[in-house]
Every structure is written in C-alpha cells, then in structure tokens.
Amino acid sequence: MDEQPEAFSYGEAPDLYVEYRRRSEPFTMAEDHYHDYYEIYYMLSGQRVYFIRDRSYSVEQGDLIFINKHELHKTMQAGDSAHERVILHFDDAVLARLAGDRADFLLAPFRQQSNLIRLPSQALMPAEQAIRRLVSEIGQRQEGYELVPGCVLIELLLTVSRHLIQHGQPPLHIATPMHVKISEVIRYINAHYEEPLRLGTLAERFFISPYYLSRMFKEMSGFTFSDYIVLTRVKEAQRLLRETDLSITDVAAAVGFDNFSHFGKTFKKITHVSPREYRKQYG
C-alpha cells in the first residue's frame, strides 16, 4: 500500500465513484457537504471525527460510515493527522443496475439510526479484503479492472446487510453529556428550521451559555451555528423544489427565509444554481 500514490479515483458521481486517499498533514473538509447520492466511507488506517446529520462519531480503523442521500456531513481531524480512507459514491440507478429487485435489501445500512457500523472481526476481514482488492485494482489498472468496483460494492453491502439481519441495529454512538446536549440542539434545528432561530434563544432553551453553545456547536459539527441553520434551510428548499409544486416564493417562506431576495442569493451561493434552475433540473 505504501508504494501507491497518495490519491487516485475511478468513475464519477453520481454514477459509481471510488476514491482512495492517504494523508499525513492536518485536514478538515472545508466545503459544506451533502449530495443526492449514497456514500460509504471506510477507514483503512488512522482516526477521524465524522459529523453526520445530528451527531459526531469517532471513526477508527475498520469502521464503516454509511451516509444517506441529502445528509449533511463533514470530517474533521482527530489526534494524529495521518489517515487512509476509501469512499464509494453511487446512486439508485447504479444499484438497480447491479442488484435488480434486491437493491432495497442492500440499502439497509443506510436506514440505521447510527451512521457508523463497526463489524466484528469475522465479518470485517472479508470486507476489508474486498476493499483492499478494490484499491489495488484501481491503483494498478490492469486489464478488466473496471469490473471490480461494482462487484466490491455489492459484496460490501451484502456483508453489512446480512450482519444487520443477524445482529440488529448497531448501538447509537456513545458521546459525552455535552455532545448529547449539542445533538439535542441540532435535532431541534432540524425540526424547526422554518422558525426564527437565534443563538441566545436556543442557548436559553437548552440551559447553555450562548458562548459555550457557539463554541461546542462548532467543535462537534464543524459548522458555525448560523451556517448550519442556513444549510439546513437550503437543503430543505431543494427538497421542496424537487418534490412539490410550491412557488419559489412559497418555498422560501416555508423554510424560514423572510426575504425572497436573500433566499435567492443564499441558495445560489450554496448550490451554484438559482432556485428556478435547480427546479428545472428535476422537472
């Protein structure tokens, strides 16, 4: 593995995409990140903190992270900056092509309360072997290597889905009391994004000082309090534009923007298209 480049990839999202990366320098995802396809993250070595939806996870070697479509997520440094990971991206069309009418069964890992799944050694060993074979095939690009990513994706999903049937859902991540408190704040924001949400008001509601809430919110999630609210509102606006016939003005109001012009500018800044252009993509 040491002889391989520090990074290489195969394919392009939302179709089947695989990326291997090894880092030795400190790194935290800079972009505000969510997408309309699935992601599997596998930690080959090292440690990371991964914030997903409403809680943060301490990710260690051998851990699998399953991120559903449209889930806000961000990785951050934990301890030693050196780490090595593989990600796989794919959408429903890819899975339907590869798995046919068993696609829904293979999506079981994305429906768990916990995004982190830590397999026991007897299940982890074949999963890691498959992932390392995938990395080797993409890195060396020998004749026929293009056949491997789809096979490994199905093998990995099948291994984890069978494990869940036999052993049930993994336990929720055990966090510190303060992390539990911040998760409660984030869940409140996720449920009340259409309402006025101010740092002081939520700090009072959850019995935390505004300064401490602001600092711990950033430390745990990687987002500032205000950035998280804006992203949540824009993400919900995207859903309404895709799935309803509400006017763009009504969508803006429904997700908590009281200024239509500000909504349009914010939406375009985050998604790089206007609300009208976004709706046309899904029309």
Rank of each mutant, 00 (worst) to 15 (best):
E60Y: 04
R85Y: 09
M76K: 12
A82L: 01
G62W: 10
E60V: 02
V86R: 10
H83M: 14
D63P: 03
A82F: 01
G79L: 09
F66V: 03
E60H: 12
E71L: 03
F66L: 06
F66H: 03
T75V: 12
Q77T: 10
F66P: 04
V86H: 09
D63T: 07
G62K: 13
S56N: 13
I67V: 15
S56F: 03
D54K: 06
E60Q: 10
G79T: 11
E84N: 13
I67P: 10
D63Y: 02
I67F: 10
G62L: 07
A82K: 14
H73K: 02
G79Q: 11
S58I: 05
V86Y: 06
S58F: 07
R85A: 11
E84I: 08
T75I: 12
N68D: 15
M76H: 00
Y57T: 03
S58K: 13
V59Q: 06
V86N: 10
S58L: 10
S58D: 13
D80F: 05
M76T: 02
K69T: 15
L72D: 00
K69G: 08
G79E: 06
I67Y: 08
R85I: 05
H70V: 03
G62V: 09
I87N: 10
G79H: 09
I65Q: 08
V59G: 07
G79W: 05
T75A: 06
Q77C: 01
K74F: 00
I65W: 00
D80T: 13
T75M: 08
D54N: 14
R85V: 05
T75P: 08
K69L: 04
D63H: 12
E60C: 03
S56G: 11
A78E: 13
E84P: 07
I65Y: 01
E84G: 09
V59D: 02
H70L: 10
I67N: 08
F66G: 03
I65C: 12
A82N: 11
D80M: 09
K69P: 02
V59S: 06
R55L: 02
T75C: 02
V59H: 09
N68C: 01
R55I: 05
R85N: 07
E71N: 08
L72T: 09
H83S: 14
L72W: 00
G79M: 08
M76I: 00
L64V: 00
A82P: 02
N68Y: 04
K69C: 06
N68A: 12
V59R: 10
A78Q: 14
D63K: 01
H73S: 00
T75R: 04
R55M: 07
R55F: 00
I65M: 15
H73Y: 05
N68G: 13
A82Q: 13
V86F: 05
T75S: 11
G62Q: 11
I65R: 03
H83K: 15
L64C: 07
Q77W: 01
G62F: 08
N68P: 02
H70Q: 14
Q61S: 11
I87Q: 07
E84A: 06
I67G: 07
D80Y: 07
H83I: 04
S56E: 11
Q61A: 09
A78D: 12
A82G: 10
K74V: 00
